[in-house]
Design a protein around this nucleic acid. Sequence first.
RNA 1: GGAGAGGUGGCCGAGGGGUCGAAGGCGGCCGCUUGCUAAGCGGCAGAGGGGUAACCCCCCUCCGAGGGUUCGAAUCCCUCCCUCUCCGCCA
Length: 421
Amino acid sequence: MIDLELIRKRPDFVRERLRLRDEGLVKLVDEALELDQERRRVIREEEELRALRNKKSKEIGLLKRQGKDTKALEEDLKNIRVKVEKIHEERERLEEKLKRVLLSIPNLPHESVPYGEDERDNVEVRKFGEPKKGKVLPHWEIGEKLKILDFKGGSTLSGSRFTVVRGFGAKLERALINFMLDLHTSKGYEEVLPPHLVREEILIGTGQLPKFEEELYKVERDGLYLIPTAEVPLVNLFRGKTLKEEELTLKLTSYTPCYRREAGSYGKDVRGIIRQHQFNKVELVKITREEDSYKELESLVRDAEEVLKLLELPYRVVLLCSGDLGFSATKTYDIEVWFPSQNKYREVSSCSNCEDFQSRRINLKYRTSDGKKRFAHTLNGSGLAVGRTLASILENYQTKDGKVEVPKVLKEYMGGKTFVV
RNA sequence: GGAGAGGUGGCCGAGGGGUCGAAGGCGGCCGCUUGCUAAGCGGCAGAGGGGUAACCCCCCUCCGAGGGUUCGAAUCCCUCCCUCUCCGCCA
Protein backbone atom coordinates (compact mmCIF):
# COMPACT_ATOMS: atom_id res chain seq x y z
CA MET A 1 0.00 0.00 0.00
CA ILE A 2 1.40 3.37 -0.88
CA ASP A 3 1.25 6.14 1.68
CA LEU A 4 -2.04 8.03 1.66
CA GLU A 5 -0.19 11.07 2.87
CA LEU A 6 2.04 10.92 -0.18
CA ILE A 7 -1.00 10.81 -2.43
CA ARG A 8 -2.44 13.77 -0.56
CA LYS A 9 0.71 15.88 -0.57
CA ARG A 10 2.21 14.96 -3.94
CA PRO A 11 -0.59 13.67 -6.14
CA ASP A 12 1.16 14.66 -9.34
CA PHE A 13 4.24 12.71 -8.44
CA VAL A 14 2.16 9.63 -7.69
CA ARG A 15 0.19 10.01 -10.91
CA GLU A 16 3.33 10.39 -12.96
CA ARG A 17 4.88 7.27 -11.43
CA LEU A 18 1.79 5.17 -11.86
CA ARG A 19 1.46 6.32 -15.43
CA LEU A 20 4.78 4.58 -16.09
CA ARG A 21 3.07 1.30 -15.26
CA ASP A 22 -0.27 1.92 -16.86
CA GLU A 23 -2.18 5.02 -17.84
CA GLY A 24 -5.37 3.50 -16.44
CA LEU A 25 -4.04 3.60 -12.88
CA VAL A 26 -4.12 7.39 -12.73
CA LYS A 27 -7.82 7.52 -12.07
CA LEU A 28 -7.31 5.54 -8.87
CA VAL A 29 -5.37 8.48 -7.48
CA ASP A 30 -8.24 10.85 -8.10
CA GLU A 31 -10.63 8.34 -6.62
CA ALA A 32 -8.51 8.05 -3.50
CA LEU A 33 -8.21 11.82 -3.16
CA GLU A 34 -11.92 12.35 -3.46
CA LEU A 35 -12.78 9.65 -0.99
CA ASP A 36 -10.18 10.92 1.43
CA GLN A 37 -11.49 14.44 1.35
CA GLU A 38 -15.03 13.28 1.86
CA ARG A 39 -13.94 10.96 4.61
CA ARG A 40 -12.19 13.70 6.52
CA ARG A 41 -15.20 15.94 6.28
CA VAL A 42 -17.35 13.20 7.81
CA ILE A 43 -14.79 12.44 10.49
CA ARG A 44 -14.79 16.03 11.60
CA GLU A 45 -18.54 16.01 11.86
CA GLU A 46 -18.66 12.77 13.80
CA GLU A 47 -15.97 13.79 16.22
CA GLU A 48 -17.63 17.05 17.07
CA LEU A 49 -20.75 15.15 18.00
CA ARG A 50 -18.81 12.64 20.04
CA ALA A 51 -16.99 15.35 21.93
CA LEU A 52 -20.32 16.90 22.80
CA ARG A 53 -21.72 13.57 23.89
CA ASN A 54 -18.73 12.78 26.08
CA LYS A 55 -18.98 16.15 27.78
CA LYS A 56 -22.67 15.82 28.55
CA SER A 57 -22.34 12.24 29.69
CA LYS A 58 -19.78 13.28 32.22
CA GLU A 59 -22.14 15.93 33.44
CA ILE A 60 -24.79 13.31 34.01
CA GLY A 61 -22.37 11.30 36.07
CA LEU A 62 -21.65 14.31 38.24
CA LEU A 63 -25.28 15.30 38.66
CA LYS A 64 -26.30 11.75 39.54
CA ARG A 65 -23.79 11.60 42.31
CA GLN A 66 -25.34 14.74 43.70
CA GLY A 67 -28.72 13.06 43.50
CA LYS A 68 -30.06 15.46 40.93
CA ASP A 69 -32.52 14.76 38.14
CA THR A 70 -30.94 14.12 34.72
CA LYS A 71 -33.95 13.12 32.63
CA ALA A 72 -33.78 16.09 30.27
CA LEU A 73 -30.10 15.64 29.56
CA GLU A 74 -30.55 11.96 28.94
CA GLU A 75 -33.27 12.59 26.39
CA ASP A 76 -31.00 15.10 24.73
CA LEU A 77 -28.21 12.57 24.46
CA LYS A 78 -30.43 9.91 22.98
CA ASN A 79 -30.86 12.19 20.01
CA ILE A 80 -27.17 12.78 19.71
CA ARG A 81 -26.57 9.07 19.71
CA VAL A 82 -28.83 8.57 16.74
CA LYS A 83 -26.96 11.25 14.85
CA VAL A 84 -23.60 9.75 15.75
CA GLU A 85 -24.70 6.35 14.58
CA LYS A 86 -25.83 7.67 11.27
CA ILE A 87 -22.73 9.65 10.53
CA HIS A 88 -20.54 6.83 11.77
CA GLU A 89 -22.06 4.48 9.23
CA GLU A 90 -21.26 6.90 6.50
CA ARG A 91 -17.72 7.20 7.70
CA GLU A 92 -17.27 3.45 7.70
CA ARG A 93 -18.63 3.19 4.22
CA LEU A 94 -16.14 5.78 3.02
CA GLU A 95 -13.20 4.27 4.84
CA GLU A 96 -14.00 0.85 3.44
CA LYS A 97 -14.16 2.27 -0.05
CA LEU A 98 -10.95 4.19 0.35
CA LYS A 99 -9.17 1.15 1.69
CA ARG A 100 -10.30 -0.90 -1.28
CA VAL A 101 -8.91 1.70 -3.64
CA LEU A 102 -5.63 2.00 -1.75
CA LEU A 103 -5.15 -1.77 -1.64
CA SER A 104 -5.60 -1.97 -5.39
CA ILE A 105 -2.98 0.65 -6.25
CA PRO A 106 0.34 -0.99 -7.15
CA ASN A 107 3.70 0.21 -5.88
CA LEU A 108 5.46 3.12 -7.58
CA PRO A 109 8.33 2.26 -9.92
CA HIS A 110 11.74 3.39 -8.68
CA GLU A 111 13.42 6.21 -10.57
CA SER A 112 16.08 3.82 -11.88
CA VAL A 113 13.47 1.67 -13.62
CA PRO A 114 13.36 2.11 -17.41
CA TYR A 115 10.06 3.02 -18.98
CA GLY A 116 8.40 0.34 -21.04
CA GLU A 117 5.16 -1.43 -21.75
CA ASP A 118 5.97 -5.10 -21.48
CA GLU A 119 8.80 -7.62 -21.31
CA ARG A 120 10.09 -6.53 -24.70
CA ASP A 121 11.28 -3.30 -23.08
CA ASN A 122 13.23 -4.99 -20.31
CA VAL A 123 16.91 -4.18 -20.23
CA GLU A 124 19.65 -6.79 -20.13
CA VAL A 125 22.25 -5.83 -17.51
CA ARG A 126 24.73 -8.67 -17.66
CA LYS A 127 25.37 -12.13 -18.96
CA PHE A 128 27.20 -15.18 -17.70
CA GLY A 129 28.40 -18.19 -19.66
CA GLU A 130 28.18 -19.12 -23.28
CA PRO A 131 24.72 -20.11 -24.53
CA LYS A 132 24.92 -23.66 -25.81
CA LYS A 133 24.08 -23.97 -29.48
CA GLY A 134 23.28 -27.08 -31.47
CA LYS A 135 20.54 -29.63 -31.21
CA VAL A 136 19.35 -30.92 -27.90
CA LEU A 137 16.10 -32.57 -27.00
CA PRO A 138 13.67 -30.34 -25.13
CA HIS A 139 13.64 -31.18 -21.46
CA TRP A 140 10.26 -32.91 -21.64
CA GLU A 141 11.49 -35.34 -24.27
CA ILE A 142 14.75 -36.24 -22.58
CA GLY A 143 12.89 -36.33 -19.28
CA GLU A 144 10.38 -38.86 -20.54
CA LYS A 145 13.07 -40.90 -22.24
CA LEU A 146 15.03 -41.17 -19.03
CA LYS A 147 11.81 -41.95 -17.15
CA ILE A 148 12.32 -39.10 -14.73
CA LEU A 149 9.44 -36.88 -15.87
CA ASP A 150 6.06 -38.64 -15.84
CA PHE A 151 3.53 -36.35 -17.50
CA LYS A 152 0.93 -39.06 -17.81
CA GLY A 153 1.16 -39.73 -14.10
CA GLY A 154 0.72 -36.06 -13.33
CA SER A 155 -2.41 -35.68 -15.38
CA THR A 156 -3.86 -38.92 -14.03
CA LEU A 157 -3.45 -37.69 -10.50
CA SER A 158 -4.24 -34.01 -10.84
CA GLY A 159 -4.84 -32.91 -14.43
CA SER A 160 -2.93 -30.64 -16.72
CA ARG A 161 0.11 -28.69 -15.52
CA PHE A 162 0.94 -31.31 -12.93
CA THR A 163 3.93 -33.58 -13.37
CA VAL A 164 5.39 -36.46 -11.43
CA VAL A 165 9.16 -36.44 -11.06
CA ARG A 166 10.64 -39.87 -10.55
CA GLY A 167 13.77 -41.81 -9.86
CA PHE A 168 17.00 -39.92 -10.38
CA GLY A 169 15.01 -36.92 -11.53
CA ALA A 170 13.42 -36.72 -8.10
CA LYS A 171 16.79 -37.18 -6.50
CA LEU A 172 18.28 -34.48 -8.69
CA GLU A 173 15.51 -32.08 -7.76
CA ARG A 174 16.09 -32.83 -4.09
CA ALA A 175 19.80 -32.32 -4.64
CA LEU A 176 19.11 -28.92 -6.15
CA ILE A 177 16.98 -27.90 -3.19
CA ASN A 178 19.64 -28.96 -0.72
CA PHE A 179 22.40 -27.34 -2.71
CA MET A 180 20.55 -24.03 -2.87
CA LEU A 181 19.64 -24.01 0.80
CA ASP A 182 23.18 -24.93 1.83
CA LEU A 183 24.60 -22.18 -0.32
CA HIS A 184 22.26 -19.51 1.03
CA THR A 185 22.53 -20.51 4.67
CA SER A 186 26.32 -20.38 4.30
CA LYS A 187 25.85 -16.70 3.44
CA GLY A 188 23.88 -15.92 6.53
CA TYR A 189 20.32 -16.60 5.44
CA GLU A 190 18.24 -18.28 8.13
CA GLU A 191 16.49 -21.38 6.87
CA VAL A 192 12.75 -21.43 7.47
CA LEU A 193 10.16 -24.15 6.89
CA PRO A 194 6.81 -22.37 6.95
CA PRO A 195 3.18 -23.51 6.61
CA HIS A 196 1.89 -23.76 3.05
CA LEU A 197 -1.65 -22.80 3.99
CA VAL A 198 -2.25 -19.26 5.17
CA ARG A 199 -5.08 -16.94 6.09
CA GLU A 200 -6.57 -14.38 3.78
CA GLU A 201 -5.06 -11.38 5.57
CA ILE A 202 -1.60 -12.87 5.12
CA LEU A 203 -2.03 -12.68 1.36
CA ILE A 204 -3.37 -9.16 1.61
CA GLY A 205 -0.20 -8.36 3.54
CA THR A 206 2.16 -9.21 0.69
CA GLY A 207 -0.13 -7.90 -2.05
CA GLN A 208 -1.54 -11.06 -3.70
CA LEU A 209 -4.99 -10.12 -2.43
CA PRO A 210 -7.40 -8.50 -3.00
CA LYS A 211 -6.38 -8.16 -6.66
CA PHE A 212 -5.19 -11.61 -7.65
CA GLU A 213 -7.73 -13.95 -6.12
CA GLU A 214 -8.06 -15.93 -9.34
CA GLU A 215 -4.37 -16.87 -9.22
CA LEU A 216 -4.71 -18.64 -5.88
CA TYR A 217 -5.88 -22.01 -4.66
CA LYS A 218 -8.28 -21.68 -1.78
CA VAL A 219 -9.37 -24.24 0.75
CA GLU A 220 -12.89 -22.93 1.08
CA ARG A 221 -13.89 -25.03 4.06
CA ASP A 222 -11.21 -23.57 6.31
CA GLY A 223 -10.80 -20.19 4.66
CA LEU A 224 -7.14 -20.86 3.94
CA TYR A 225 -5.09 -20.33 0.79
CA LEU A 226 -2.19 -22.33 -0.60
CA ILE A 227 0.87 -20.12 -0.85
CA PRO A 228 1.90 -19.04 -4.38
CA THR A 229 5.44 -18.35 -3.08
CA ALA A 230 7.33 -18.61 0.20
CA GLU A 231 7.62 -14.83 0.14
CA VAL A 232 4.10 -14.78 1.58
CA PRO A 233 4.76 -16.61 4.87
CA LEU A 234 8.31 -15.32 5.22
CA VAL A 235 7.46 -11.63 5.00
CA ASN A 236 4.30 -11.99 7.07
CA LEU A 237 6.28 -13.68 9.79
CA PHE A 238 7.16 -10.13 10.82
CA ARG A 239 3.71 -8.58 10.65
CA GLY A 240 2.94 -6.23 13.49
CA LYS A 241 6.54 -6.26 14.69
CA THR A 242 8.78 -3.39 15.62
CA LEU A 243 12.31 -4.62 15.04
CA LYS A 244 15.49 -3.21 16.48
CA GLU A 245 17.57 -1.34 13.95
CA GLU A 246 20.65 -3.36 14.92
CA GLU A 247 19.05 -6.66 13.96
CA LEU A 248 18.56 -5.53 10.35
CA THR A 249 19.21 -6.66 7.65
CA LEU A 250 17.33 -9.90 8.32
CA LYS A 251 17.95 -12.61 5.74
CA LEU A 252 15.74 -15.66 5.31
CA THR A 253 15.66 -18.56 2.94
CA SER A 254 13.02 -21.18 2.51
CA TYR A 255 12.19 -24.16 0.39
CA THR A 256 8.49 -24.59 -0.35
CA PRO A 257 6.29 -25.79 -3.14
CA CYS A 258 4.38 -22.94 -4.78
CA TYR A 259 0.78 -23.29 -5.88
CA ARG A 260 -0.56 -21.17 -8.70
CA ARG A 261 -3.71 -21.49 -10.74
CA GLU A 262 -2.07 -19.93 -13.80
CA ALA A 263 -5.39 -18.51 -14.87
CA GLY A 264 -5.09 -16.71 -18.17
CA SER A 265 -1.99 -18.53 -19.33
CA TYR A 266 -3.84 -21.08 -21.43
CA GLY A 267 -1.75 -22.27 -24.29
CA LYS A 268 1.52 -20.95 -22.84
CA ASP A 269 4.23 -23.48 -22.13
CA VAL A 270 1.84 -26.38 -22.25
CA ARG A 271 4.63 -28.85 -22.74
CA GLY A 272 7.23 -29.59 -20.14
CA ILE A 273 7.55 -28.33 -16.60
CA ILE A 274 8.14 -24.63 -17.18
CA ARG A 275 4.64 -23.64 -16.12
CA GLN A 276 3.10 -25.86 -13.47
CA HIS A 277 0.33 -25.46 -10.92
CA GLN A 278 2.72 -26.74 -8.30
CA PHE A 279 6.46 -26.22 -8.37
CA ASN A 280 9.33 -26.15 -5.94
CA LYS A 281 11.15 -22.97 -5.18
CA VAL A 282 13.87 -21.83 -2.83
CA GLU A 283 13.09 -18.28 -1.82
CA LEU A 284 15.20 -15.46 -0.42
CA VAL A 285 13.74 -12.68 1.72
CA LYS A 286 15.33 -9.65 3.31
CA ILE A 287 14.01 -7.14 5.80
CA THR A 288 16.12 -3.97 5.72
CA ARG A 289 16.42 -0.38 6.84
CA GLU A 290 15.06 2.03 4.29
CA GLU A 291 18.50 3.39 3.41
CA ASP A 292 19.88 -0.09 2.70
CA SER A 293 17.25 -1.65 0.51
CA TYR A 294 18.67 -0.87 -2.92
CA LYS A 295 22.12 -2.00 -1.93
CA GLU A 296 20.57 -5.14 -0.53
CA LEU A 297 18.63 -5.71 -3.73
CA GLU A 298 21.89 -5.82 -5.67
CA SER A 299 23.40 -8.36 -3.31
CA LEU A 300 20.20 -10.37 -3.31
CA VAL A 301 20.45 -10.73 -7.07
CA ARG A 302 24.11 -11.74 -6.73
CA ASP A 303 23.16 -14.37 -4.18
CA ALA A 304 20.59 -15.83 -6.57
CA GLU A 305 23.01 -15.66 -9.52
CA GLU A 306 25.59 -17.55 -7.52
CA VAL A 307 23.45 -20.66 -7.79
CA LEU A 308 23.58 -20.60 -11.58
CA LYS A 309 27.26 -19.74 -11.63
CA LEU A 310 28.09 -22.73 -9.49
CA LEU A 311 25.84 -24.94 -11.60
CA GLU A 312 27.65 -23.52 -14.64
CA LEU A 313 24.42 -22.69 -16.41
CA PRO A 314 24.45 -19.76 -18.87
CA TYR A 315 22.18 -16.96 -17.75
CA ARG A 316 21.51 -13.28 -18.01
CA VAL A 317 20.16 -10.66 -15.66
CA VAL A 318 17.39 -8.41 -16.85
CA LEU A 319 16.08 -5.19 -15.34
CA LEU A 320 12.31 -5.10 -15.67
CA CYS A 321 10.76 -2.08 -17.28
CA SER A 322 7.98 -0.17 -15.56
CA GLY A 323 5.17 -1.92 -17.40
CA ASP A 324 6.43 -5.40 -16.50
CA LEU A 325 6.83 -4.79 -12.76
CA GLY A 326 4.89 -6.91 -10.31
CA PHE A 327 2.23 -5.35 -8.14
CA SER A 328 4.25 -4.85 -4.94
CA ALA A 329 7.65 -4.08 -6.45
CA THR A 330 9.40 -0.78 -7.07
CA LYS A 331 12.27 -2.44 -8.91
CA THR A 332 12.84 -5.97 -10.12
CA TYR A 333 15.67 -7.94 -11.68
CA ASP A 334 14.82 -11.19 -13.38
CA ILE A 335 17.43 -13.86 -13.82
CA GLU A 336 16.95 -15.93 -16.92
CA VAL A 337 18.64 -19.23 -17.64
CA TRP A 338 19.46 -20.53 -21.08
CA PHE A 339 17.22 -23.16 -22.70
CA PRO A 340 19.03 -24.53 -25.79
CA SER A 341 15.98 -26.32 -27.18
CA GLN A 342 14.01 -23.08 -27.23
CA ASN A 343 17.03 -21.02 -28.15
CA LYS A 344 16.17 -18.48 -25.48
CA TYR A 345 16.52 -17.42 -21.90
CA ARG A 346 13.71 -18.22 -19.49
CA GLU A 347 13.03 -16.73 -16.06
CA VAL A 348 14.26 -18.71 -13.06
CA SER A 349 14.31 -15.90 -10.55
CA SER A 350 12.67 -12.59 -9.91
CA CYS A 351 14.28 -10.34 -7.30
CA SER A 352 12.33 -7.34 -6.09
CA ASN A 353 12.50 -4.45 -3.71
CA CYS A 354 9.08 -3.64 -2.31
CA GLU A 355 10.32 -0.76 -0.17
CA ASP A 356 7.67 -0.09 2.50
CA PHE A 357 4.73 -1.24 0.37
CA GLN A 358 4.29 -4.53 2.18
CA SER A 359 5.44 -3.14 5.52
CA ARG A 360 2.58 -0.69 5.49
CA ARG A 361 0.15 -3.48 4.85
CA ILE A 362 1.50 -5.65 7.65
CA ASN A 363 2.61 -2.83 9.95
CA LEU A 364 6.27 -3.87 10.08
CA LYS A 365 8.53 -1.24 11.57
CA TYR A 366 11.91 -0.80 13.13
CA ARG A 367 13.08 1.63 15.77
CA THR A 368 15.97 3.87 14.81
CA SER A 369 18.72 4.87 17.20
CA ASP A 370 16.98 8.18 17.91
CA GLY A 371 13.87 6.28 18.94
CA LYS A 372 11.76 6.91 15.86
CA LYS A 373 9.70 4.21 14.24
CA ARG A 374 9.96 3.62 10.52
CA PHE A 375 8.50 1.14 8.12
CA ALA A 376 11.03 -1.50 7.17
CA HIS A 377 11.77 -2.32 3.57
CA THR A 378 11.09 -5.83 2.32
CA LEU A 379 12.78 -7.65 -0.54
CA ASN A 380 12.27 -11.03 -2.05
CA GLY A 381 13.78 -13.15 -4.78
CA SER A 382 13.83 -16.70 -5.97
CA GLY A 383 17.02 -18.50 -5.33
CA LEU A 384 15.89 -20.32 -7.54
CA ALA A 385 12.80 -21.85 -9.11
CA VAL A 386 13.83 -25.47 -8.75
CA GLY A 387 11.74 -27.10 -11.49
CA ARG A 388 12.91 -24.69 -14.13
CA THR A 389 16.49 -25.11 -13.01
CA LEU A 390 16.10 -28.86 -13.33
CA ALA A 391 14.62 -28.45 -16.80
CA SER A 392 17.52 -26.26 -17.80
CA ILE A 393 20.01 -28.85 -16.54
CA LEU A 394 18.26 -31.54 -18.58
CA GLU A 395 18.97 -29.48 -21.66
CA ASN A 396 22.32 -27.85 -20.95
CA TYR A 397 23.89 -31.00 -19.51
CA GLN A 398 22.51 -33.31 -22.16
CA THR A 399 25.12 -35.50 -23.86
CA LYS A 400 25.08 -36.61 -27.49
CA ASP A 401 24.21 -40.16 -26.49
CA GLY A 402 21.08 -39.06 -24.67
CA LYS A 403 22.25 -38.94 -21.10
CA VAL A 404 22.34 -36.04 -18.67
CA GLU A 405 25.48 -35.26 -16.78
CA VAL A 406 25.19 -34.26 -13.15
CA PRO A 407 26.60 -30.75 -12.57
CA LYS A 408 29.83 -30.84 -10.57
CA VAL A 409 28.48 -29.11 -7.50
CA LEU A 410 25.57 -31.54 -7.27
CA LYS A 411 27.64 -34.71 -7.33
CA GLU A 412 28.09 -34.81 -3.60
CA TYR A 413 24.31 -34.58 -3.28
CA MET A 414 23.77 -37.43 -5.75
CA GLY A 415 25.64 -40.17 -3.98
CA GLY A 416 28.52 -39.88 -6.41
CA LYS A 417 26.32 -40.42 -9.44
CA THR A 418 27.69 -38.56 -12.46
CA PHE A 419 25.10 -39.28 -15.17
CA VAL A 420 21.39 -39.71 -15.29
CA VAL A 421 20.72 -42.51 -17.75
C1' G B 1 -13.62 -34.28 17.87
C1' G B 2 -14.87 -33.58 23.57
C1' A B 3 -14.03 -30.68 28.24
C1' G B 4 -12.00 -26.45 30.44
C1' A B 5 -9.07 -21.74 30.99
C1' G B 6 -7.77 -17.31 28.90
C1' G B 7 -6.81 -12.90 25.36
C1' U B 8 -5.69 -5.58 29.01
C1' G B 9 0.36 -0.86 27.38
C1' G B 10 7.52 -3.30 25.46
C1' C B 11 6.58 -7.51 29.13
C1' C B 12 4.00 -9.38 33.67
C1' G B 13 -0.52 -8.18 35.89
C1' A B 14 -4.97 -5.60 38.57
C1' G B 15 -9.57 -3.44 37.49
C1' G B 16 -16.38 -6.40 36.75
C1' G B 17 -20.91 0.50 34.42
C1' G B 18 -19.04 7.29 35.08
C1' U B 19 -13.63 10.63 37.94
C1' C B 20 -9.95 4.41 33.61
C1' G B 21 -5.68 5.27 28.41
C1' A B 22 -6.19 2.22 32.46
C1' A B 23 -3.25 0.48 39.63
C1' G B 24 1.18 -2.13 40.77
C1' G B 25 5.66 -4.50 39.21
C1' C B 26 9.57 -5.33 35.63
C1' G B 27 11.99 -3.20 31.63
C1' G B 28 13.06 1.87 28.99
C1' C B 29 14.50 7.13 28.96
C1' C B 30 16.00 11.80 31.66
C1' G B 31 17.79 14.01 36.03
C1' C B 32 19.74 13.93 41.13
C1' U B 33 22.68 11.34 44.58
C1' U B 34 27.31 8.61 44.29
C1' G B 35 35.30 6.89 43.94
C1' C B 36 33.19 3.22 39.73
C1' U B 37 29.28 -0.13 39.37
C1' A B 38 25.04 -1.46 41.93
C1' A B 39 21.38 0.53 44.84
C1' G B 40 18.40 4.79 46.18
C1' C B 41 15.41 9.22 45.14
C1' G B 42 12.61 12.34 41.67
C1' G B 43 10.62 12.87 36.92
C1' C B 44 9.20 11.36 31.70
C1' A B 45 7.28 7.99 28.39
C1' G B 46 1.42 3.84 24.34
C1' A B 47 -0.78 3.48 19.23
C1' G B 48 -3.84 5.28 15.21
C1' G B 49 -6.64 9.30 13.36
C1' G B 50 -8.88 14.52 12.87
C1' G B 51 -8.03 19.91 13.41
C1' U B 52 -2.95 23.02 12.21
C1' A B 53 1.62 25.54 7.20
C1' A B 54 3.90 23.37 11.44
C1' C B 55 4.42 23.11 16.75
C1' C B 56 2.48 23.76 21.47
C1' C B 57 -2.08 22.25 22.07
C1' C B 58 -7.24 20.61 21.48
C1' C B 59 -10.44 16.66 20.05
C1' C B 60 -11.84 11.46 18.55
C1' U B 61 -10.85 6.24 18.65
C1' C B 62 -8.28 1.95 20.58
C1' C B 63 -8.29 -3.15 26.76
C1' G B 64 -8.47 -10.08 20.66
C1' A B 65 -12.44 -8.80 16.34
C1' G B 66 -17.44 -7.52 15.24
C1' G B 67 -22.33 -6.46 16.89
C1' G B 68 -25.88 -5.19 21.03
C1' U B 69 -27.78 -2.95 25.87
C1' U B 70 -27.01 2.12 28.13
C1' C B 71 -27.20 9.14 28.67
C1' G B 72 -22.30 6.58 29.40
C1' A B 73 -18.87 -0.05 28.31
C1' A B 74 -12.10 -2.61 29.42
C1' U B 75 -16.31 -3.71 32.77
C1' C B 76 -23.04 -6.38 31.13
C1' C B 77 -25.16 -9.49 26.70
C1' C B 78 -24.48 -12.06 21.76
C1' U B 79 -21.39 -13.87 17.61
C1' C B 80 -16.67 -14.90 15.78
C1' C B 81 -11.24 -15.44 15.88
C1' C B 82 -6.92 -16.83 18.40
C1' U B 83 -3.83 -19.01 22.39
C1' C B 84 -3.14 -22.51 26.31
C1' U B 85 -4.32 -27.13 29.33
C1' C B 86 -6.47 -32.05 29.69
C1' C B 87 -8.83 -36.23 27.07
C1' G B 88 -9.63 -38.78 22.39
C1' C B 89 -7.85 -39.68 17.39
C1' C B 90 -3.74 -39.44 14.19
C1' A B 91 1.87 -39.18 10.89
